[in-house]
Amino acid sequence: MSKMRKMLAFAVMAMFTLALCAFLAGCSGGSGLSEGVPEWADEAAVVQDAQAVIEDFSARDYDSVAAKGQTVGLTADQLQGAGDAVLDALGSFSSFGDSACMTGADGAGAEFVTVVQMADYENGTAQYTISFYEDGSLAGFYVK
């Protein structure tokens, strides 16, 4: 094997090894989130709960959404501040798309279930990421 080929092969193997190490290190740490629902949750029920929150939000009933989010300090004013602009751009709510769930834990170790729910509107599609604690209160609410 020529010297050039050996150098090229070595460079490739070195980069591959570095990347593999980084990959494995990342895998072992993980994101802290896992697919599916925790033992205390029923997937159909949490998806239904998430859809109910989305319907309230889409109807601009920010008080109802905020009532569920008191644990994390979510207020109607905060929701209105961001929500009005988002909903003005999206238009009227049309239908729900597909959904998927994952499980995680907050900084204090409290487990939550997260529902990623697609929702179709008059002017486009929105992706909601809504998290619930075991007692049904909101652990997070994001829309994009």
Binding site: F23, G26, C27, G30, S31, L33, S34, E35, G97, D98, S99, A100, C101, M102, T114, V116, Q117, M118, T125, Q127, T129
Partner: peptide, 20 residues
């Protein structure tokens, strides 16, 4: 793909595989 819920969950739960 980004407009599907499963891909959002995949990217969040399997960040390394997602990057790969």
């Amino acid at each position: 793909l980004g407009n599907t819920a499963w891909f959002a969950v995949f990217s969040a739960t399997q960040p390394m595989l997602y990057i790969l």
